[in-house]
Design a protein around this nucleic acid. Sequence first.
DNA 1: CGTTAAGATGACAGCGTTGTCAAACGGCGT
DNA 2: ACGCCGTTTGACAACGCTGTCATCTTAACG
Lengths: 337, 337
Amino acid sequence: MTTKPKLTIEDIAKAAGVTIKTVSRVFNNAPNVRQQKRDLVLGVARDLGYRPNISARQLASKRSFVISHFHDNPNTDYLSEIYEGMRRACSEQGFYAVAEKLAPQKGSYRQALLDYLVRFEVDGMILSPPISDDVAVIREIEKRNIPYALISPGKKKKSAINVFIDEKNAGRSITDYLIARGHDQLAFISGLDSHAASRQREAGFWEAIEVAQIPKKNAVRLAGDFSMQSGFAAFDNLMKKAPHVTGIFAANDEMAVGTIVAALRNGKKVPQDLSVVGFDDSPFARAMWPAITSLAQPVNEMAHLSTQKLIEWVHAEALGQSRFEFSTEIIIRESCS
Amino acid sequence: MTTKPKLTIEDIAKAAGVTIKTVSRVFNNAPNVRQQKRDLVLGVARDLGYRPNISARQLASKRSFVISHFHDNPNTDYLSEIYEGMRRACSEQGFYAVAEKLAPQKGSYRQALLDYLVRFEVDGMILSPPISDDVAVIREIEKRNIPYALISPGKKKKSAINVFIDEKNAGRSITDYLIARGHDQLAFISGLDSHAASRQREAGFWEAIEVAQIPKKNAVRLAGDFSMQSGFAAFDNLMKKAPHVTGIFAANDEMAVGTIVAALRNGKKVPQDLSVVGFDDSPFARAMWPAITSLAQPVNEMAHLSTQKLIEWVHAEALGQSRFEFSTEIIIRESCS
DNA sequence: CGTTAAGATGACAGCGTTGTCAAACGGCGT
DNA sequence: ACGCCGTTTGACAACGCTGTCATCTTAACG
């Protein structure tokens, strides 16, 4: 069992004929190192297979090299995408990605965050809905001057990195799609109203209807909460309130699945009798049968970029550009006639 | 902005009137500290709100305090449960839980693991299926003497912590349930054959049939791969091969969902025309309509215990008891007539 | 060429903890 | 009271890196 000799910065310095400080500079992308030496050091380090010791770095620099994602979203697929995007960006930069579920107390995540920060050090944080809209949380973060990024926030913050899609426009375009396929009796199944995104998607829904000059009474709003169950319930509701509806826009895929299953149970054919579109392009949408037409947002990329920008912010100790809009795409599948 | 003074071990030592080494001993549960001093130090530390600095600990002790879970399982709910169980155990002990998805190369996860270990230090690892059965991976781990735990391994290892349920017995009992409800025309939808668990569940299925003296020809095996799509396909297959079947046991919930959706599409009522049971008690099972009767294994608890035992192993530098069997439970819902 | 200032490099003291080993303590048998 | 030995405590040097500040180069300019 050959115990690896565990290289230190000193070994590299010796091998490259410089001092440890120069090696340190190279590995921190610090300025004032001749390009030639930089290459030399990197070459030697690569050949020997050297990796800086994280703990020593943390201890000496008083940074944690940790980017933490705080969330409270039961959608594990969404979380996985975010985590994967973070992980990619972090490992490129020698940082660590961590995910932490926060539990609200009296509607705010403030206390949970504080509890966390007592125990752990983070260099930067990423917040996703609904935490990205918790003003008490944001106040605490700003008080501590911790760089942070908001994914899909309801309100953009000047002093943060904001990564988002145009939710309203996305809602508008997928509704337009439904209308273009000939539907003029429509329903929107909402998510939780506490999620700004749901409200904005709905705004897009109504805008599309107005622009298409469809009478408002031909469209109905059904309350949901992003869960599959609420999709079942929404369908039942629909049958009572507006059985003539043929096109449904659910604010997320889970509810779309619920709606479709409920429809099948009631002997309706999808998409022949009822067209349903979802939102998020989650595995649900891909896996369902019929596969669900859905609006895809590049969550993984969004998390990747936020993390990159966050790390730049940590290094530069200053926030650069703060708003990054991503474009969306309608993934057309079979749930729409 | 009151910058927290950042307590060090020295502050505690001073406040308690001992040296830092004694404080260190207390925080490491080291032997040879008078109980009275131990209490004193702990009291002072609690009052002042002291937390040992992780990086310094890592640096000085050459341990990472990281327990890593290596997986390659698309079921994010399963992964979340494991992670949560690990996180609980870790935070109790001042350790860190990390999850890493490994990608196989030529059927083995060995290279992916090696790539990971070059970059990161771990004190212990947890492997879940299918990696828990990759002999090349296990060989590498043992070569390095890293404590490790296997969740639901196909073959138990003497030199590892094994945490598992009796898969065969579980398969047997849920099939018994189906039989007890009057079904004598049965089908089993398998998962990936590379997962030992699927094979064992199937063995239980056939055992139940044999014991109940149901003719073998009244039972059929349909190949699946744990995905919802394969559940759709399995149903189609079933209609061709054995349309008289009334009771289906799917090796996981996703396939159960797929089967039910396909059945609904084909005008069959669940559970009136067809009974379906799943396995894992995943959110799918809870959320589906009809909600699916499923076999629950305490994944969270299993991960929690593995992590605890792993940390004990790290501290003691020796493996104690190595086998921990967990019991399962049939969660009865509405998918079975 | 000498001067100067910016740029490149180095020496060295921490960072907060644990490991090692030596010293002090305390209980027991005589 | 003395010596012995196991238990408890302490002093101090690591651990591998970065921050600070001093020193040495270099290139540009007069």
